[in-house]
């Protein structure tokens, strides 16, 4: 099957593999600790692990865009900031 029209590159493939691994990791986590661990955090509404992953990924997208628009194209710092943000989301949200 010719997939050249999809124009795959190593960085984009890595990006999707990481997202896939995160989702697979969540499934494994759910298998060993079922129920999604719902709790009410700083946002004052109930979130599950899946919600927290979604909030982390969505927020990371905006962090990268904000960094790119306000600081510059060196996105490693944005990635580091996103990891800190994701940690905070999983810890406090």
């Amino acid at each position: 099957m010719n997939l050249s029209w999809m124009a795959w590159t190593l960085p984009t493939a890595t990006f999707f593999i990481v997202i896939g691994l995160l989702i697979a990791g969540m499934a494994v986590w759910e298998y060993f600790s079922p129920g999604g661990h719902p709790r009410v955090g700083v946002l004052r509404f109930e979130t599950t692990r899946g919600d927290r992953l979604f909030i982390s990924l969505l927020g990371s997208g905006f962090i990268h865009l904000a960094w790119l628009g306000l600081v510059g194209p060196d996105l490693w710092w944005a990635l580091a900031l996103s990891l800190v943000y994701a940690f905070c989301v999983f810890r406090f949200v």
């Binding site: 795959w8 984009t12 194209p73």
Partner: peptide, 24 residues
Amino acid sequence: LMTVVNYSVQDTFGNNVFFWVGVE
């Protein structure tokens, strides 16, 4: 969506020939 992500970091002049441009 995957294809759009791939296109967003490349440039093309057609014929499925792409050039990496990063986040430009």
